[in-house]
């Protein structure tokens, strides 16, 4: 089945869980494995946290998240209208963070890239950032408790 959803929420850290839960419900009809589900939740968390802590840098703005499924393929798009990224290649590098004075590890994009099948970053300084991630949901061979 092909499906689509979209939500907008305030850039506060409480909404990281909202975003994860929302996508989890959205993909559940595809019956992802526990590992795929955890990978998706973690990647959403990374992208949404980046909008909040970097894009809006603690200021209040709106984060937009949409998702669609085409068969077993999930696509998620997460957008902020914040500061944008000056150098995308640098931002993608493991351990690079523009906030070394805080407790950031610079692993966000590295985690998204390893947990999802593709991660695309579109950004314009002063305009904002969009991250588009895709993942093919694997066939679930885990034995269900139901039987």
């Amino acid at each position: 089945m092909n499906n689509y959803m979209s939500i907008r929420f305030k850039s506060v850290s409480e909404n990281e869980a909202l975003a994860r839960n929302c996508i989890a419900s959205f993909v559940s009809p595809l019956e992802p494995t526990m590992e795929d589900m955890a990978d998706i939740r973690t990647s959403i968390s990374e992208a949404v946290t980046n909008c909040i802590v970097h894009g809006y840098d603690g200021k209040i703005g709106m984060v937009e998240m949409s998702a669609y499924t085409e068969g077993k393929k999930l696509t998620i798009k997460i957008t902020d209208r914040g500061c944008g990224i000056h150098n995308i290649d640098k931002a993608r590098q493991p351990l690079y963070t523009s906030k070394p004075e805080t407790e950031r590890s610079g692993m966000g994009f590295t985690i998204m890239e390893s947990f999802m099948d593709s991660v695309k970053i579109i950004s314009k300084e002063g305009k904002g950032t969009t991250v588009i991630m895709t993942k093919n949901i694997r066939e679930n061979t885990e034995v269900s408790d139901a039987g």
Binding site: E46, T49, S105
Partner: peptide, 14 residues
Amino acid sequence: LTMMDSAGIGLIIG
């Protein structure tokens, strides 16, 4: 724990 993201890495190292 059911999920951890990069914030957990920062917490541990900090």
